[in-house]
Simulated scan of single mutants.
Amino acid sequence: MPDFSYESNIDGLVCGVDEAGRGPCAGPLCVAAVILDPARIPAGIADSKKLTEKLRFELEPEIKAAAIAWSVIEMSAADIDCHNILKATMMGMTQAVEALGTLPVHALIDGNRCPPLAIPATAVVKGDDKCLSIAAASILAKTARDRIMIEMDGLYPMYGFKGHKGYQAQSHIEALRIHGPSPIHRMSWATIRTLTEVDYEGA
């Protein structure tokens, strides 16, 4: 389970940064940054992937209410197609930290590399399973993205976004074969190019 040891070893405010949605072939990438108040950390924070959808949505408002600062940035499918998923992730992480309003002295980044920031940062592999701040960010990123995909299901019901959230489920692949891509599909993804025979010319 994640704890606050990484944050406690740094003097001053520390933010955790994580994303949701790198793998799907449809929908945005959401990136969150969170500065937790060590005196008001909600119980139950963990890697979002290890929590049920119900628990994630229950924890979301608790984290937002208790945090010193938080932000969520959305990078659209068009952004991802334009910049590629790695660059879009790094851009989103930079923007999420800058959007906090309260500037931390250090950022803990989930993964093995850090985005360009005006403050020092540390990459923590599997950070959402080690650092409470990163785990909190993983929950905010995941709930924000899931909410968007549920809304997109209302606009494009033929794809079943509410269920698979844009991942390559068999039902999603079959829908792509029948209907082709929607405006929120990532045209640079091999899955989309292969299934829909789209000739994508990206950056």
Score class of each variant (00 low, 15 high):
residue 82 C to L: 14
residue 129 D to L: 14
residue 187 M to P: 03
residue 86 L to W: 10
residue 81 D to S: 00
residue 184 I to Q: 10
residue 118 A to I: 09
residue 101 G to D: 09
residue 167 Y to I: 04
residue 88 A to S: 08
residue 82 C to W: 15
residue 103 L to N: 13
residue 115 P to Q: 06
residue 96 A to K: 03
residue 85 I to Q: 01
residue 145 R to S: 12
residue 161 F to H: 02
residue 121 A to T: 00
residue 187 M to K: 07
residue 183 P to S: 05
residue 187 M to D: 01
residue 50 K to Q: 13
residue 125 V to S: 09
residue 192 I to N: 04
residue 107 A to G: 03
residue 94 T to R: 14
residue 123 A to P: 05
residue 58 E to W: 14
residue 147 R to A: 15
residue 75 M to Y: 12
residue 127 G to V: 00
residue 129 D to R: 14
residue 87 K to I: 08
residue 65 A to N: 13
residue 66 A to P: 15
residue 110 D to Q: 08
residue 82 C to V: 13
residue 56 R to V: 03
residue 161 F to A: 05
residue 54 K to A: 13
residue 126 K to L: 12
residue 163 G to T: 13
residue 98 E to V: 15
residue 52 T to W: 10
residue 160 G to L: 11
residue 100 L to S: 06
residue 63 I to A: 02
residue 93 M to R: 10
residue 125 V to K: 04
residue 161 F to G: 07
residue 148 I to Y: 13
residue 83 H to W: 08
residue 131 C to V: 09
residue 141 A to S: 01
residue 101 G to K: 13
residue 117 L to P: 10
residue 160 G to Q: 10
residue 155 L to S: 11
residue 102 T to C: 11
residue 138 S to R: 04
residue 134 I to R: 00
residue 170 Q to Y: 09
residue 95 Q to F: 13
residue 66 A to C: 11
residue 170 Q to V: 11
residue 176 L to P: 08
residue 68 I to Y: 14
residue 136 A to D: 03
residue 148 I to A: 07
residue 115 P to R: 01
residue 144 A to R: 04
residue 121 A to I: 00
residue 119 I to G: 06
residue 129 D to A: 15
residue 185 H to A: 07
residue 58 E to S: 05
residue 107 A to C: 09
residue 175 A to C: 06
residue 155 L to K: 12
residue 84 N to P: 06
residue 115 P to Y: 02
residue 164 H to K: 05
residue 72 V to I: 02
residue 176 L to H: 04
residue 96 A to C: 02
residue 163 G to F: 15
residue 130 K to C: 08
residue 138 S to L: 01
residue 188 S to P: 10
residue 65 A to S: 14
residue 185 H to E: 06
residue 111 G to P: 03
residue 149 M to A: 00
residue 50 K to D: 14
residue 148 I to L: 09
residue 157 P to I: 04
residue 163 G to Q: 14
residue 155 L to Q: 13
residue 85 I to P: 01
residue 144 A to S: 06
residue 188 S to I: 02
residue 147 R to Q: 14
residue 94 T to W: 10
residue 162 K to W: 15
residue 74 E to P: 13
residue 155 L to G: 09
residue 125 V to H: 08
residue 155 L to E: 09
residue 75 M to L: 13
residue 84 N to I: 03
residue 158 M to T: 09
residue 164 H to V: 03
residue 158 M to P: 10
residue 173 I to G: 12
residue 141 A to L: 00
residue 80 I to C: 00
residue 54 K to H: 07
residue 154 G to T: 06
residue 80 I to Y: 02
residue 63 I to H: 05
residue 81 D to L: 04
residue 95 Q to D: 02
residue 94 T to Q: 15
residue 167 Y to G: 04
residue 76 S to P: 06
residue 120 P to A: 11
residue 62 E to W: 12
residue 146 D to F: 14
residue 151 E to A: 08
residue 72 V to S: 05
residue 72 V to N: 04
residue 116 P to C: 15
residue 150 I to T: 15
residue 161 F to N: 04
residue 162 K to P: 14
residue 92 G to C: 01
residue 62 E to T: 13
residue 120 P to K: 09
residue 126 K to H: 15
residue 50 K to V: 15
residue 165 K to L: 11
residue 70 W to N: 06
residue 132 L to I: 01
residue 143 T to V: 01
residue 166 G to F: 10
residue 63 I to W: 03
residue 61 P to W: 02
residue 161 F to I: 02
residue 137 A to R: 00
residue 84 N to A: 06
residue 113 R to F: 01
residue 125 V to G: 04
residue 159 Y to K: 01
residue 119 I to H: 07
residue 65 A to M: 12
residue 190 A to C: 12
residue 193 R to M: 12
residue 99 A to M: 01
